[in-house]
Design a protein around this nucleic acid. Structure first.
Length: 594
RNA sequence: GCGCCCGUAGCUCAGCUGGAUAGAGCGUCGGACUUCGAAUCCGCAGGUCGCAGGUUCGAAUCCUGCCGGGCGUACCA
C-alpha cells in the first residue's frame, strides 16, 4: 500500500505543479509538497484515498473545489496511463479510487510469501535499542502494575524488532535495600526453617508472606525498624550469615517471579542486579566531581545543580559516601552502554518517576555521554480499581498469579459451558492462552501514558473488543480451513494462489479487507515510531471485526465456483496470518481451536 | 505553591504530527442459529469532545487561561 500511495502522491504532486505553471503562471517550486498528505475518506463510497487541497488555495489564489476540478482532469489522464485508477472530486478534496488489480493480487501474494514476516517494516533498520522493563523487587510477588509494565515492555520490544531494530531486553532486579531486609528479618524471627516446598507455596509468594508478616509485627514491635536497618548494615558489611539468608530468599523470590514471566511469555536478554550495580555509579559521580560537573557540600555529600534547566539540586552521594537510587541508575546506564553499545535506551517505568528520569538523563548528558540524548522514559499510567487505587495496606493489590488463575478458571468454564472440551486437546493449556490473550489485550488497549481502570469482573469479559474475540476469529478461519482440507480442497499457498484473484474477490467487503491487510506494515511502523502497542490493538480489532462481518454474509466454502472457494480461502488465510502476526506483537497467543 | 500528565456516550476506552457527518466495546432495547463454530453477526437509542478565549479556509487534535482529577516536588526506591 505504501508503494501505491507513494506513486499516487508523486503523480498528483507533479500534476499540481504543472497546473500551477500552466494555468496560474507560477513557478512550480512554489508548490510545497509537504502539504500534500494522503488520508482516507470518511466513507467507502467516496473512494479509497483522499487528498485535501485546501492548503493550496492561498498560493494558487483559487477556491479548493476549483483546484480539485482542474487537478482531477489532469490526474485522471496521467493515472490512466499508469493504470493506477481514477480520481474524482468532492468539494476541496481529490478522492482516488484504486485499480483493484494493482492491489489485490500483489497484496495477497505478499502476505503468503512473507508469512510470519509479513508486516515487517524497515524504518528502524540497524538501530540498536535497549528496552528496560519489569524491574521487580525481591520481597514480594508480581502484581497487576507489573503486568502492565511487562506487557508494555515485551510488546514494545517486539514491535521495535519488527520495525527492523536490534533489540536487547533488560531487567533490573531490585534485590537490595531495607525492604528486602524486612522480609529476611521476619523469616529469621518467625520462619522456623520453613521452605516453599515444606509449605507448598509458590516461592515468591512464600517470601512475600514474610514481608506481610513483618508489617504486622512492626505495628506491635517498636524495635522492628531498627532491627531491619541493622540487618541492612550487616548485609552491606558482608556478614556471611546475613548474606546466606539473603541469597536464599532472593533465590526463592526470583525463581517464583521467573515462573510468572514464563507463564506470561515475557523474557529478557540480560538481567542486571542492583546488588551488583549499586556501587557502580559512585566512581562516575566522583569523576564528575573532579571535573567540576558536580559539587560537594560541607558535610561531604555530592550534588548536581540543575536549576539552570528548571530542575532542582539533587543529591548524588550521601554524606556517608553511599549511593542512592539515582546514583545507581547512572552507573547502570553506563555499564549497559559498555556491555552493548546502543543508539537508544527505553525505560518502561511508571509515570510517578517522570521527574527521576528527567534528572537522570540530564546528569548523564552533563557527564558528556553523547548517547544520553537518546534515552527515553516510556512512562505509563497507574492501574486503578473501580473502587480506587490499589493499596497494599488495605490488601487491595491484585496479585498477578491469582489474577491469571482466576482468568484461567473463567476460560475453562466458558469452554465447558459451550461443550467444547472434546474439540480441544488441552483444556487447561487452551484456557491459559485465552486468559493471557484477555489480559494482555486489555492492558495494551489503553494508551500507555494514561491511567487505567481495571475491573476484574466486567473488563475481562471474553466478548466484544477483547483478546479472545481475536483468538476466536482465528479459530473460526482455522476451522474453515480444516473443513476445506477435509473436502479435498487444496489450500492456497504462496506457490499456488488462484488466478484472477481480483476478479474472484469482487465483493465490497473483500476489497475493504485487502486494503486493511495491505496497510499492516505501515501500522507496524507507526506503532514503533510512537512506541505504542495501542496502534496494533486498534488495527487488529478492526481487521477481525471486518472479517467477522464478511464471513457471516459471504460463504467461503459454498462460493459459486471452485476457483472462488479457493480465492476466498486465500483471503481468509491471509487475514488469519495478519491477525496472528499482529497478536504476536501484543503477546496475545494464537489459537487454532478454542 | 511549583512541575508533569489526564479530562471524548451511563461505564471502560480509541481517535490527538489539524481535514469531510467524532468511533468501538460493555450496558439498555430489538432482530439472526435444520446453512463454513452464536466467545459471532445485524439494528435502535445514547455526545456542548471539562469550560472560556485564541490561531486557522478548517480544531476533539495546536496555543493561553480557568475548573476537575492523578503523580511528583526525600541524603526512599
Amino acid at each position: 500500500m505504501q508503494r501505491i500511495k507513494g506513486r499516487w502522491r508523486d503523480l498528483v504532486l507533479e500534476e499540481l505543479k504543472e497546473l500551477a505553471r500552466e494555468e496560474y503562471n507560477l513557478d512550480p517550486e512554489q508548490i510545497d509538497g509537504a502539504h500534500l498528505v494522503i488520508s482516507t475518506p470518511p466513507e467507502e463510497k467516496l473512494g479509497d484515498l483522499a487528498l485535501p487541497l485546501f492548503p493550496y488555495a492561498k498560493v494558487l489564489r483559487n477556491a479548493p473545489p476549483k483546484i480539485a476540478a482542474q487537478l482531477c482532469e489532469r490526474v485522471n489522464a496521467a493515472a490512466a496511463a499508469q493504470e493506477l485508477g481514477t480520481a474524482e472530486t468532492a468539494g476541496g478534496y481529490l478522492n482516488l479510487r484504486l485499480n483493484r488489480d494493482q492491489l489485490i493480487e500483489p497484496a495477497l501474494a505478499e502476505v503468503f510469501k512473507a508469512g510470519e514476516e509479513y508486516g515487517r517494516a524497515d524504518t528502524l533498520n540497524g538501530v540498536r535499542t535497549v528496552v528496560e522493563f519489569s524491574c521487580p523487587n525481591t520481597n514480594k510477588p508480581l502484581h497487576l502494575g507489573h503486568l502492565r509494565n511487562d506487557a508494555l515492555g515485551e510488546s514494545v520490544s517486539r514491535i521495535l524488532k519488527f520495525a527492523g531494530s536490534e533489540v536487547r531486553k533488560v531487567n533490573l532486579i531490585n534485590d537490595r535495600g531495607v525492604h528486602i531486609c524486612k522480609s529476611m528479618l521476619a523469616y529469621r524471627t518467625f520462619g522456623e526453617g520453613a521452605t516453599p516446598e515444606s509449605e507448598g507455596t509458590k516461592s515468591d509468594h512464600f517470601v512475600g508472606d514474610y514481608y506481610v508478616r513483618y508489617s504486622q509485627w512492626e505495628a506491635e514491635e517498636p524495635d522492628a525498624e531498627r532491627q531491619a536497618k541493622e540487618l541492612l548494615q550487616r548485609w552491606e558489611q558482608g556478614d556471611p550469615e546475613t548474606v546466606d539468608l539473603w541469597l536464599q530468599m532472593n533465590r526463592w523470590a526470583i525463581d517464583g517471579i521467573e515462573e510468572t514471566y514464563k507463564r506470561t511469555g515475557v523474557g529478557f536478554d540480560a538481567i542486571y542486579f542492583e546488588s551488583e550495580t549499586y556501587k557502580a555509579g559512585r566512581d562516575e559521580v566522583l569523576k564528575g566531581l573532579e571535573r567540576g560537573v558536580f559539587y560537594q557540600a560541607e558535610d561531604g555529600s555530592v550534588w548536581v545543580d540543575l536549576t539552570d534547566i528548571d530542575l532542582d539540586q539533587k543529591v548524588l552521594l550521601r554524606s556517608d559516601g553511599t549511593s542512592l537510587y539515582l546514583t545507581q541508575d547512572i552507573g547502570t546506564a553506563i555499564q549497559r552502554h559498555h556491555d552493548w553499545p546502543f543508539e537508544r535506551m527505553i525505560y518502561v517505568v511508571a509515570s510517578e518517576q517522570n521527574y527521576h528520569f528527567k534528572v537522570l538523563f540530564s546528569v548523564l548528558e552533563r557527564l558528556g555521554f553523547n548517547w544520553a540524548r537518546n534515552l527515553y522514559h516510556l512512562s505509563y499510567g497507574m492501574v486503578n480499581l473501580p473502587e480506587g487505587k490499589m493499596k497494599s495496606r488495605e490488601g487491595t493489590v491484585v496479585d498477578a498469579d491469582l489474577l491469571l488463575d482466576k482468568l484461567n478458571e473463567m476460560a475453562v468454564s466458558e469452554i465447558t459451558s459451550k461443550a467444547r472440551e472434546d474439540e480441544i486437546s488441552d483444556l487447561h493449556g487452551t484456557a491459559e492462552r485465552i486468559a493471557l490473550g484477555a489480559l494482555h489485550y486489555f492492558l495494551l488497549q489503553t494508551s500507555p501514558n494514561k491511567d487505567m481502570v481495571f475491573d476484574p469482573a466486567a473488563s475481562l469479559s471474553f466478548n466484544g473488543n477483547t483478546g479472545p474475540y481475536l483468538q476466536y476469529t482465528c479459530a473460526r478461519i482455522s476451522s474453515i480451513l480444516r473443513k476445506a482440507e477435509a473436502a479435498g480442497i487444496e489450500p492456497p499457498s504462496a506457490e499456488s494462489l488462484p488466478e484472477d484473484l481480483a476478479g474472484l474477490l469482487a465483493h465490497a467487503d473483500e476489497w475493504q479487507l485487502v486494503k486493511q491487510l495491505a496497510v499492516f506494515p505501515e501500522v507496524v511502523a507507526q506503532a514503533a515510531e510512537g512506541l505504542n502497542p495501542t496502534v496494533v490493538t486498534t488495527y487488529v480489532y478492526e481487521l477481525a471485526k471486518a472479517f467477522s462481518g464478511y464471513y457471516h454474509e459471504v460463504p467461503v466454502l459454498r462460493a459459486e465456483s471452485p476457483e472462488q472457494v479457493r480465492a476466498r480461502l486465500a483471503l481468509a488465510l491471509a487475514v488469519r496470518q495478519v491477525i496472528a502476526n499482529a497478536l504476536r506483537l501484543i503477546d496475545v497467543p494464537f489459537l487454532e481451536r478454542m
